[in-house]
Amino acid sequence: MSWKGSFWALVRDYQTQLGMLWLFLVFMLVLTVITLLFGERGTESYTLAVINLAIVLGFGSIVSAVFWMSIRHGRSH
Rank of each mutant, 00 (worst) to 15 (best):
S64V: 02
A65S: 11
S61V: 13
F27G: 12
V33L: 15
L36T: 05
H73P: 00
V11I: 10
Q15D: 01
F67M: 07
L53A: 12
L21W: 04
L25F: 13
F67T: 06
G5T: 13
W3R: 09
L21A: 14
S45C: 02
Y14H: 12
Q15N: 01
T35I: 02
R12E: 07
I55R: 05
L53R: 01
T16R: 03
I71R: 11
T35K: 11
L21Y: 02
A54I: 10
L48P: 00
I55N: 04
V50I: 13
W3C: 02
W3V: 10
A65W: 10
I34A: 11
R75I: 15
S6L: 14
L37P: 00
W22G: 02
A54E: 03
T47A: 14
G19V: 02
V50A: 03
V11E: 05
G19H: 06
T32Q: 06
I55E: 04
G5A: 10
F59E: 12
F67E: 00
F24A: 15
F27Y: 11
L21D: 03
R72T: 07
W8H: 09
N52W: 03
L37D: 05
T47V: 09
M20T: 07
V30I: 15
A9D: 13
L29V: 00
G60S: 11
G19C: 04
S61F: 14
G39K: 04
V50P: 00
A65G: 03
G42I: 09
I62N: 08
F7V: 14
Q17H: 07
W22I: 01
E44R: 11
F7W: 14
I55M: 08
G60R: 05
D13W: 01
M28V: 11
H77K: 15
